[in-house]
């Protein structure tokens, strides 16, 4: 009983953060800022949902698969974000006009 309520709470938290991540995806100005919202909130939100499912299921076959899913999301999502950000920067996508500093650009101009 208590386990099911706790599981529900975690699933609700997860859905809230997923929603905020999507909101960030719409509101923030450029690729890089959107990636921030997409990686942090969505990783945490999805992990929250999966953890809630794990609490409801307990330590059985299904629960373990969910835990492995959390592990893989944590390992892959930052790598994907890094790759997209790097590819975007290399193919010349501009940062938003509000940008304060770009030391990556400065260093690469020095090399070229």
């Amino acid at each position: 009983m208590i386990r099911e309520i706790l599981g529900m709470v975690f699933i609700l938290i997860g859905i809230t953060f997923d929603f905020l991540g999507v909101l960030g995806l719409v509101r923030l100005p450029d690729v890089y800022n959107r990636l921030q919202a997409a990686t942090k909130c969505v990783t945490f939100g999805s992990a929250g949902i999966l953890f809630g499912v794990f609490l409801q299921q307990g330590f059985n076959n299904f629960g373990f698969k969910v835990l492995v899913g959390i592990l893989f999301i944590f390992l892959t999502s930052p790598v994907a974000a890094h790759t997209i950000a790097r590819a975007a920067h290399r193919s010349g996508i501009k940062l938003t006009a509000e940008t304060v500093v770009d030391q990556y650009q400065e260093d690469h101009e020095l090399k070229d």
Binding site: R27, L28, P29, D30, Y32, N33, H89, L95, T96, E98, T99, V100, V101, D102, Q103, Y104, Q105, D107
Partner: peptide, 9 residues
């Protein structure tokens, strides 16, 4: 939307 984005090293 209080942001000050940028790339630092």
């Amino acid at each position: 939307l209080p942001i000050r984005p940028g790339i630092v090293k």
